[in-house]
């Protein structure tokens, strides 16, 4: 076992543990904070995958914006400081079963898939990921259209969110 593998196992374990806490903790603020921890773990996983840019964007977008939004939403939609009553609905066992089945199914499928043992190629020296990413995102031959569509989506979401949350007098 190499250092990298040990680091991965630790990070993955911590991430999954905090992920479990996200879906199980009674206090929603805690759940949101555990989400932050999970997202941070995923950012570290990105770093392990040599995708530093993705890691940083993960932190900026998810922790800096989405998690904060969640915390705000939790705070804005509660009457008391604490969350009372059941946090899981009556079908939680079915949900758990589905989750376990999903994982089992995915795991079984992954085991039978031939590409699992693939090893990562060395990233060529001098390969500038960010420059390449930027070039592909803005190249008409590559992904400029999805990129633009995503921007339109964000704009629409912004307008929609402002409209929905706007407190009409």
């Amino acid at each position: 076992m190499t250092t990298e593998q040990i680091i991965f196992l630790i990070v993955a374990g911590a991430t999954l543990a905090s992920g479990l806490l996200v879906v199980t903790s009674r206090n929603l603020i805690h759940a949101a904070l555990w989400l932050v921890a999970t997202l941070f773990g995923v950012a570290i996983v990105y770093t392990l995958l040599n995708a530093g840019f993705m890691a940083v964007v993960q932190v900026v977008v998810y922790i800096g914006a989405i998690a904060i939004l969640f915390i705000f939403a939790v705070m804005l939609t509660r009457k008391d400081m604490r969350d009372s009553g059941a946090q899981l609905n009556s079908n939680w066992w079915a949900g758990a079963l589905m989750a376990v089945l999903t994982f089992g199914g995915l795991f079984a499928m992954l085991r039978t898939w031939g590409g699992m043992s693939k090893t990562a190629a060395e990233i060529p020296a001098g390969f500038d990921q960010i420059a390449e990413l930027g070039a592909q995102l803005t190249s008409p031959e590559a992904y400029v259209l999805p990129f633009e569509v995503a921007s339109v989506l964000l704009l629409a979401a912004m307008v929609g969110a402002v409209y929905l949350a706007f407190n009409k007098k």
């Binding site: 609905n89 079908n91 079915a94 949900g95 589905m98 089945l101 999903t102 199914g105």
Partner: peptide, 18 residues
Amino acid sequence: GRIQQYFILSLVVIFVVG
């Protein structure tokens, strides 16, 4: 009217069919 139950049912169908 509970979307989570629909979700579970659709997943059941997916698992059965799959």
